[in-house]
Design a protein around this nucleic acid. Structure first.
Lengths: 111, 111
DNA sequence: TTATTTCATTGCAATATTACGATAAATAAA
DNA sequence: TTTATTTATCGTAATATTGCAATGAAATAA
């Protein structure tokens, strides 16, 4: 009990859910938006930008990295992070086709 | 400790994260896809379609309803569920602008 | 009325997430 | 070398999520 039964679902369903989970925290949205804004690949001054502890930011960065949304490169004692372009595009397409699979109508299908 | 500090983030960041969380489970993706596919607003035969217990499906339906992604209408002892058109469009737009805020380039910004 | 059907809710156990202090590891600076 | 800087990891506490059996609630059928 308490563990998601991934075997019940298609690979696509699991993938969409997994990716949604990766961005399902405001801190991770804030990190991504800051990386996009500064472009020039920021490191732990995300700790300053956002008000969370260093360990917490590091943890969120790891989750984003594991999801493939960002990548980091070591530069001395620092680590520069930036968006992972290919994976970002893949995720965008995945969500796009998911949302577009519902052809929008003005009235709901159940009264 | 252990509770998300929403006050640190913008309304938009919290909204995106909240909506991502709503679809961050394969069962909820499966439910949404089945509602889209059948169009004619399905009820608890989602229990048959997906292999989870009735109570579990009901719980996922509630989460989707609370997020505003679906709506239900009572019909006798049954409840018909379908996509909530306006909110679906709103969510699609929210995600679309989030993903488009990163103007894609072929090479990452950090080496 | 008394079943029956359908869905929601409650209560619980197992697991996952969030947050942070403390510490470790690795490099740079003195 | 020693010290400072930066980031990752460990350990822990608080909270949230997932899943299901059991029970409730509400409408229908007999």
């Amino acid at each position: 009990m308490g563990v998601t039964q991934t075997h019940l679902f298609t690979e696509e369903q699991n993938k969409i859910a997994q990716m949604a989970k990766a961005i399902a925290h405001p801190a991770r949205i804030a990190i991504l938006q800051h990386l996009i804004k500064t472009n020039s690949c920021i490191n732990g001054d995300l700790v300053m930008e956002i008000g969370l502890a260093q360990a917490t930011i590091s943890q969120h960065l790891r989750e984003l990295k594991e999801a493939g949304l960002i990548q980091g490169s070591i530069e001395g004692t620092r680590v520069n992070y930036c968006i992972h372009p290919e994976n970002w595009t893949m995720l965008r397409n995945l969500f796009h086709s998911f949302f577009e699979s519902y052809s929008n109508c003005t009235t709901p299908s159940c009264t």
